[in-house]
C-alpha cells in the first residue's frame, strides 16, 4: 500500500510536469516518472521480505528480498541518468542555438522578479 501511494504520487506529479511543458519540467517529470517506474518494479518483487540479498549466511534466505527486480532497477537508474544527461544536452543545445524557442517557452521572464542568475 505504501508503495502504491508513492507510485501514485510520483507518477501523477511526473505527468503534471511533463504535460505542463517547458524544458526543465520535462526533465524533472522524466526523473520522477523514472522513480515511479523503479518503485513499481521493486514492488513487483514483494516488499514483505526486506533483508538485503547478500547470501553470506548471515540471514535466512526466506527473508531476503527478491534480487531480480533490484538488478533491473539498478541498471534502469543508470540508464535514466544517461538519458537525463542526453536530454540536458539537447535542452542546452537548443537553448543556446535558438533562444526563445519552443522549449524555453513557459519560463518566467526576468521582470517578474523570480529569476536567479
Amino acid at each position: 500500500m505504501s508503495l502504491a501511494i508513492a507510485v501514485a504520487l510520483l507518477a501523477g506529479v511526473g505527468t503534471w510536469l511533463l504535460v505542463r511543458g517547458g524544458a526543465v519540467r520535462l526533465i524533472l517529470g522524466f526523473i520522477l516518472l523514472g522513480h515511479a517506474a523503479n518503485l513499481v518494479i521493486i514492488a513487483a518483487g514483494g516488499t514483505n521480505r526486506r533483508v538485503a540479498p547478500i547470501v553470506d549466511g548471515s540471514a535466512p534466505l526466506d527473508a531476503a528480498a527478491d534480487p531480480l527486480p533490484q538488478a533491473f532497477v539498478l541498471t534502469a537508474i543508470v540508464i535514466t541518468f544517461g538519458v537525463t544527461v542526453y536530454l540536458l544536452g539537447l535542452v542546452a543545445r537548443i537553448a543556446k542555438k535558438s533562444p526563445g524557442s519552443e522549449l524555453e517557452e513557459g519560463f518566467e521572464s526576468d521582470d517578474e522578479g523570480v529569476s536567479r542568475r
Partner: peptide
C-alpha cells in the same frame, strides 16, 4: 545547465495537466 535558464511558469493548460 538549468541555472542558465530563466525560472519557469506553467505553459500548458493547468486543468489538462
Amino acid at each position: 545547465v538549468l541555472s542558465r535558464l530563466p525560472a519557469h511558469r506553467g505553459l500548458g493548460s493547468s486543468t489538462r495537466a
